[in-house]
Amino acid sequence: MTTDRLSPPPYDPAAAAAAAARFAATAPADVAYAVVESPVGTLVAARTPRGLARLAYEDFDGGVDAVLEELAAHLSPRILEAPARLDPVRRELQEYFEGRRTAFDVPIDWTVVAGFTRRVLRATAAIPFGEVSTYAKVAAGAGSPRGSRATGNALGSNPIPIIVPCHRVLRTGGALGGYTGGVHRKEALLRIEGVLL
C-alpha cells in the first residue's frame, strides 16, 4: 500500500453476472426480451406488460442490439433480458413450427402501432391459418380506400411477423409479393401452412 493508492478489492465476476441475471429476471422492466431460435432463423421477441410488442428477424433488423435500440427509442429504455417472461411466445412458436398450432393465443400489445397500420395489421391478424388474402382485400378490410400500395407499406412495418401473419397477404393474381424477413421466409411459412407445396 503506497501513500495514496489502495488496490481495488478482489471480486468474483461470475457472482456479479449471477446477480445481474437475477435482477433482469425479476425487476419490473417496461420491456422484457428474449432471443428465440426458430426454423426461419433467430428471432428477437419483446413484450410489455400488455403483451407481445415485437418479433424481429435478427439478421434482417440489424441484429439484437439494433432491435433493442429501436425499442428503447420507441417504447422505453427500461429493457431487460428476461427469457422466462417470453416463455409463452417461445412455446407457441415452437408448436406452430412443429405443425401443432394454427392460431396464436399470446396477447399482443397493439399500442405499438397506430392509425392505418394498426387497422391493416388487425385485418391481417384475422386471416386464418391455411388461407391467403391480397393487398387489395386487406386494404378494404382495413376500411381504407388508400389501396394496396399503402397496405403493402403498412404490412412491411409489421412489428410482429409470423404471429400477425403478414406472410398470408399476396398480390392479386397469386404472386408472392415482398416480405420484410425476405421472400424465402414468406415461402417457408406458407409451406408450413400447406398453402405452398
Partner: peptide
C-alpha cells in the same frame, strides 16, 4: 441522443457495482 437499453447499462456496470458492494 437516446439512452441505450437498460440491459446494456446493467451489463456495462455490473462488475463495478458488485466490486464496490463486496468491499462496502
Amino acid at each position: 441522443m437516446t439512452l441505450p437499453p437498460f440491459q446494456r447499462f446493467l451489463d456495462t456496470h455490473r462488475n463495478d457495482v458488485w466490486r464496490l458492494l463486496v468491499a462496502a
